[in-house]
Amino acid sequence: MEPFLFVPLLFAASIAIGLLGSLAGVGGGVIFTPLFLAFTAADPDVVRSTGLALAMTTSVIAGARYLAAGLANFRIVLFASSFMAPAAIMGAYMGLYVTAVFPQGAALVRLSLGAIMFLIVVLLTVKRVEWPEVPESDWLAKRLGFPSSYWEPSLRRTVKYNVRNTLQASAFLVAVGLISGLFGLGGGWALVPVYNLVMSLPLKVAVGCSVATLAVGDAAGLWVYVNSGAVVEQLVAIVVPGVMIGAAVGSRIALRIRARAMRYIVVGVMVVSAVQLLVRGAEELWA
C-alpha cells in the first residue's frame, strides 16, 4: 500500500475503535487487541504491548479526572495496584515466554484470548448496583481508611460508602492483573464488577477506581514488553492518539444516541473477534 495511505488508514481505524469503545462504555484495549490479533498477521507480542500502552495511557489521563472529581479513592487504588501490578508483570513475562518458547505460542495466545473474550462479553452484561448498601466496612477496610464519601449531583448530597470483602477482592485483583499483562487487554471489564459487586463500592466510585488502578497495573506490565523490545513506537504513536481522539468525540456524542444499541454493536464485534481468534488459533495449532 502507498506510504501516504497506510498511516492515515491506521489512524482512522484507531479513531473508530476509540469512538466505538467510548460509546459502548468499554476501554479501547479490549477492542484493539482481539481485533488486531484476530484479523492481522502482526506479532502477538507487538499487538499485546500496544494494547497495554493504549489501556495505560487512556487510564492515566481519564484517571486524573476521576481523582480530581473525588470519584476515585486513591487509597483503594494503591491497595488494588499492589496486587494487580505484580500479577501484570507476571502475566507479561508469561505471555512473552509462551510466544518465545513454544513453537505454537501465537496459536495458544489466540485460542486462550478467544475463550477469555466470551468471559468478557458475559461480564459486560452483568447487572451493576448503583449504590450498594453496606452497613459497616470490614476490619481491613477500616484499618486502611477505605470508607469515604463523594458528591452525587443526581441526589444533590454527599454519599458515604463503606467497603467490604477487601481480602477476597485481592484474589480477583491478582487474576485481573494476570490476564491484563498476558493479553494486553486493560481490565476495566473485570475491575468494575470486582469493585462494585465484590467490594460494594458505588458504581461511579467503582468506575473511577477501576480506571485509576488500570493505569498503575498496566504500567507495570508495559515495562516488561518495553524491555523485551516488543513495543513498536510508530504503532503506539498512531494507535494511542487515534483511540483517544475517538474516545473524546464518542463521549461528546454518547448522550445523543442510544447507548444500548452501541453496546450491542461492540458485543457483536467482540464475539466475531473471539470466534475468529478461536478458528485461527485452532488452524495454527493443528497446521
Binding site: M1, F6, V7, F36, T40, A42, V232, Q234, L235
Partner: peptide, 9 residues
C-alpha cells in the same frame, strides 16, 4: 514509517 507499520502488521 509506513514500511515499518505494514511490515509489523
Amino acid at each position: 514509517a509506513s514500511c515499518l507499520l505494514q511490515a509489523t502488521l
